[in-house]
Design a binder for these strands. Structure first.
Lengths: 363, 363
DNA sequence: CTGAAAGCGCTAACAA
DNA sequence: TTGTTAGCGCTTTCAG
């Protein structure tokens, strides 16, 4: 392993100078810079994790972790729990994580968020759900501090140059998988009912539907019979939606498959299974996050679910920030794709998302 | 974070003494031992990764990695590639990995293996396919060196007390998943043909079949119509087996599903798809390891495959050894279960097993 | 602009 | 049986 000492010896300067050059701390002459950088490249220098880890403690790195804390957003509870876990691990390297919980979509939340960002200039790296990256970038450019890296997760709604890396799944692919499963489980002439929470604002749901449609091109006889969405401001239990689902299923008894893109409330599955009569329908959902869902997969109310590794969406952003700021390691790609896995009854682990229960969110 | 200095100060001894006690190096009095251990527990001491990582270099840890190098065992090529990758990463902590390739099942290989183990007394941790753990244990007990930890991977054919941890999947569960997929894709009255490489010696295949059968109890109308195995010493392309598959499929045209437990050669899928006529059959396989298989999933000759994370079976054993020997971290469980994932055309990543091609095995 | 030195947490070698 | 010291690779601070 080649160390900064080797480079110093090679070039004939002190360790300090090598450090200054390699970490762009300035106060070095162009001449030595050239020599040192050339030597570093020639010898294949890479910062060692052990030494850098030890020395990181005196940097006292501060990260900001923004997460969504809304009762029905179980996905984000898992994300948050995983982030806390990772933060605990990073604490031994002197890292402190500041959390900010977003409680809803109102303008007042954005103001609180803005204040939080402004109030924490000491933070040298952000991990945020994609939707909130824009706001941080705005503040940064107002202040010319745009070198502070941002990792987005779960959603990627910002230009690639505005974040260091996005950690999350490919929603289009999730949609294609749902269609593939439909073809395999309901046959290539499936008739599909699509149900989702109001997709007006949320891009992930549009993309999943788009992916589903895209894949349908390979299955010309699969048909989406109807798409049903929650009424705006309908509330969690969505009585209107349930009513329309019931009506639709009796109007189209030949519906073979229900693709539940993202219901706030999974009790909609009960409506589907009650309406079944003697026809057993295939029900496909996204994300495995609540106990209710687990029970539904177990007893067949949900046939299959497509999961997107929420734990890694919580832990990896912090890890990437640490690697970037303390270890001098840039992420390999600007999109760290999280795996989409298919869950059916037989691979439903008793301990599927073990972090979920370890932490309670205080609202 | 509480350090060994804190403990030394608390108890009123030197760091060296604390180190000796906490790492059981002997040469300490029972009295100080008690005081130090009590203080460590009280303060919640845990060895820091950064410091331990740096200091590990002077331990010059040596690990032994045993792998299977047989042309048709593509699974193990991936395992090996991942192990090399991890070894490279660990080299910065002063770790050296000694590899031993097993080329076959003959007795002479066992002798070579035995000589390798005997010839490397400096090795302080082993990572081996389960089948080979027994031999190492035997040698160890002959020499009273049974403290050297063994991590098994891929197969767990040794008593829990004879290894520190097993890294691999639950083959019974893999079988249950195959049955679950059968029910979902061919219906609950599926008629199944099971094909496998001679399962005489190999436990994983028996367990998968056992899991399949186990799950069949929940689907009383699923039936295994026939089981076909390669003749002993038949050779890779298995012409006899292919012939019998062809015959079986024409004898039982109502076979809906083929479960390929572990064919040495996937070209058997071609036989199945050629014999199809107008009936499209569901073909389920295990492990996604060759380009041929990828092509088959793409064009439908294979319907679904159940993967078991070969990369992690290569990297984790080394990581676990390092954590154990350098970081004082025991594995959380004595079985680190690897995830079983279902792969269909739509989640077949172009880059599914990216390590596979990075290394060439020299036979 | 550059060098020297101290220190992060831990281990190992040596001295007492 | 215990303490002391040096050093792993890197960062930081202070002198020059």
């Amino acid at each position: 392993m080649v160390t900064i000492n080797d480079i110093a010896a090679e070039v004939g300067v002190s360790r300090g100078t090598v450090d200054r050059v390699l970490n762009h701390r300035g106060r070095t002459s162009a001449a030595t810079e050239k020599k040192i950088e050339e030597a570093a490249k020639r010898l294949g220098y890479q910062k060692g994790r052990a030494g850098a880890g030890l020395a990181a403690r005196k940097k006292k790195l501060q990260f900001g972790f923004v997460y969504i804390d809304v009762k029905e957003a179980s996905f984000h509870h898992i994300v948050y729990a995983a982030a806390k876990n990772k933060a605990e691990e990073l604490s031994q390297y002197g890292v402190t994580v500041h959390y900010f919980a977003i409680h809803g979509l109102d303008e007042s939340e954005m103001i609180r968020f803005r204040e939080f960002v402004l109030g924490h200039p000491e933070i040298s790296g952000w991990a945020v759900p994609g939707e909130y990256a824009r706001e941080i970038r705005n503040i940064q450019s107002e202040q010319d501090r745009s070198t502070v890296p941002i990792i987005t997760y779960n959603l990627d709604s910002v230009k690639p140059e505005d974040r260091l890396c996005y950690v999350g799944c490919d929603y289009r692919k999730a949609g294609r998988m749902a269609c593939g499963l439909t073809a395999l489980m309901s046959g290539t002439d499936a008739r599909v009912l699509v149900i989702s929470d109001d997709p007006g604002g949320v891009r992930s749901e549009k993309e999943r539907l788009q992916g589903f449609r895209e894949e349908m091109l390979h299955y010309p006889n699969i048909e989406i019979v109807r798409e049903l969405y929650t009424e705006e401001r309908e509330g969690l239990d969505a009585p209107m939606l349930k009513k329309r689902v019931r009506e639709t299923l009796s109007e189209y008894p030949d519906i073979t498959t229900v693709y539940l893109i993202n219901p706030g409330d999974y009790s909609i599955c009960n409506v589907v299974s009650e309406a079944a009569g003697n026809t057993k329908r295939v029900v496909i959902t996204n994300d495995l996050v609540t106990d209710e869902q687990v029970a539904m997969i177990r007893d067949g109310r949900i046939t299959a679910t497509i999961d997107q590794e929420p734990e890694l969406q919580g832990s990896r952003p912090l890890e990437i920030l640490f690697d970037y700021l303390a270890m001098d390691r840039k992420p390999l790609n600007d999109w760290e794709k999280r795996k989409l896995s298919i869950i059916i009854r037989q691979n439903l682990d008793e301990d599927f998302h073990p972090l979920g229960e370890k932490y309670h969110l205080v609202h």
